[in-house]
Write a protein that binds this DNA or RNA. Structure first.
Lengths: 122, 122
DNA sequence: TAGACTAGCAACCCTTGAGTTGCACGAATC
DNA sequence: GATTCGTGCAACTCAAGGGTTGCTAGTCTA
C-alpha cells in the first residue's frame, strides 16, 4: 500500500514525481482544523512559541508541539531557538507546490473538458 | 475538540467563516495518496467508473468507492448513473476555495513580513 | 428467463493520528 | 546555588480512517 503513487506509474507519469509527495505533505498538514488554526495564527504574528499558541487553543502545549513538528516536516514552519524558548516562523513556500498541484489537475481537466466540448460540437 | 475553529474565535475572525471548513474538506480529501491518484486519473478521463479505477489501482473496488464518496462529499466529484453503472466526473471548483485559503494565509504572512522589514529598516 | 456484470451496504481488522499525562533537562532569575 | 520557566521525550488512551470480505440488489444480454 505504500507505493500507490509509484504503483500507479502508468498514471503518475504526468510530470509529477515526488512533487506529489511534497504537495501531499502540505495537504495532510492542512487537513487538521487545529493545524489550520495554528497556521492562521502564525500568519498574523511574525513568530510565536508553542506555549503561547497553547494558551490560545483548547489543547495542551505538547499537542501544539506535535502539530508544529508536523508542520515543520511539511516545510511550512521553521524553528529558531532564542534562549530557553524556541520560536516558530511560518514559511509558506511549500504552499506554492500545493497550489501548483491543484491548478495542474484542474487545468488538465479544463483542457479535457474543452476537447470534449469541441468533439460534441462537430 | 470539534469546535477548535469556533473555539479559536478570537483568531478565526479573519474573514473566513465556514470557508475554512470547505477548504479543510478539500485538504483532507487530497491528503491521501490513493485519493490523489484517483483525482489525477479523473483529470485525464472525462468520466470513469469505480470498477475501472479499481482495475488500475492496487486496491479493491469498494475501497475506491469509499474514496469517491469522500471526494463527492468534498464537492470534488459528481456522480451520474448511466444504466447499470455510475460514472464519476471531476468537479474542480472547490479547488479554488482551497487555493484562496492558502493564498490568503501566505499573503497575510507576506504583508506581515514586509511590515516587519520596514520596521527594521527605519 | 437465466446468467453475467455493476453497484451498494454492512460488518469487520488494523493501523494511524490527535490528545493526554508524567517526567527529565537546559536556560533565566532571584 | 536553588528555583522557576520553557522544552523535549516517552508511554498511553481512544477514536477515526483506509482496506478487506461477504452478501444483496439492480441492469443488461444471450
Amino acid at each position: 500500500m505504500p507505493d500507490v503513487v509509484g504503483g500507479a506509474s502508468g498514471l503518475g507519469a504526468g510530470g509529477g514525481h515526488d512533487a506529489d509527495l511534497l504537495a501531499g505533505a502540505v495537504f495532510a498538514a492542512l487537513a487538521d482544523p487545529t493545524r489550520r488554526a495554528v497556521v492562521r495564527e502564525l500568519s498574523r504574528q511574525p513568530t510565536t512559541t508553542a506555549t503561547a499558541l497553547a494558551a490560545e487553543l483548547p489543547i495542551s502545549r505538547q499537542a501544539v508541539a506535535k502539530h508544529l513538528n508536523l508542520l515543520a516536516g511539511a516545510g511550512l514552519v521553521a524553528t529558531e531557538r532564542a534562549g530557553r524558548e524556541t520560536r516558530y516562523r511560518l514559511t509558506p513556500d511549500p504552499l506554492e507546490q500545493a497550489v501548483r498541484w491543484m491548478t495542474e489537475v484542474g487545468g488538465q481537466w479544463d483542457r479535457r473538458l474543452e476537447r470534449l466540448r469541441r468533439h460534441v460540437a462537430e
